[in-house]
Nucleic acid binder design. Structure first.
Lengths: 135, 135
DNA sequence: CTTGACCCTGTACCTTACTACATGGTTTAG
DNA sequence: CTAAACCATGTAGTAAGGTACAGGGTCAAG
């Protein structure tokens, strides 16, 4: 059987060795078997698991949520609907953050257009707005 | 002259006492005069400065950036254009984050619609995608 | 056999923006 | 006058997701 060192699985997943150990501490990957000298010995399935983590992170899931997703996968009786619910919750979460950012962007944009980009700071509408916006 | 305790200025700005002290440590507000017993004594201008900080935070500026903005205000020769540039940079920053989030949302949305919300996890298109997406 | 590239553990540090004590002095309301 | 409410300092902890050593053992090439 093939065994892979931590360096190999890390590289294969595009992660650093320290990060893989960190994920182990976080419970995202199981503690692997050890060689006589104490080296971690992984099977190829660990690379897939790490890639799962990397991809889920790219979709905006936190490590905690990814852990839940991985646990779910091992839960008898869990169904597609459970995963779907989590994905939908994450979408809602992302939408909320977008809404927040859009509001900031809009408010900043309004200030920027009021500013001609000329003159001293004493006349700057941006600073004025920060200074004395209505409570 | 009116002097305000830290509790008063904190409350007026909608902050906690600890937060005001934290802002002092961060250099966002000056170290105030002290009473005989060592109490911080603020003038009303500190409330405005704290409110400035609160509003700038609401617009998405980090404390570091707010510090720069406040310093700028005290820089002779600095102009409106400098402030405008920072506001525009922040807008660009926010847009980048929105773009990132939109991409996540779109990717997640595509997975969710592929999922009928029925059946076992072994058939879940969402987990499948995380498991074996093309590299 | 030596050198360099790995691996191990454990701990500490990074960012951002606070928040929470512990311990003790001060001020104010009743 | 006393008790509550406030203020002081200093240290440490929080979330999230790592990164960086220090100090030491191990493995493969030449």
């Amino acid at each position: 059987m093939t065994t892979l060192t931590i360096g190999k699985v890390a590289k294969a997943a595009g992660l650093g060795v320290e990060t893989v150990r960190f994920y182990e501490r976080q419970g995202l990957i199981a503690e692997p078997a050890r060689s006589d000298s104490g080296y971690r010995q992984y099977g190829p399935e660990t690379i897939r698991r790490l890639q799962f983590i990397v991809r889920a992170k790219a979709l905006g899931f936190t490590l905690q949520e990814i852990g839940d997703l991985l646990d779910l996968r091992a839960t008898p009786g869990a169904g597609c609907a459970d995963v779907q619910a989590r994905a939908e919750a994450k979408i809602a979460d992302i939408e909320e953050r977008i809404t927040q950012l859009e509001a900031m962007k809009r408010a900043l944009g309004e200030l920027v257009v009021q500013c001609r980009g000329e003159g001293p700071l004493s006349d700057c509408p941006i600073l004025d707005a920060l200074d004395e916006e209505a409570p």
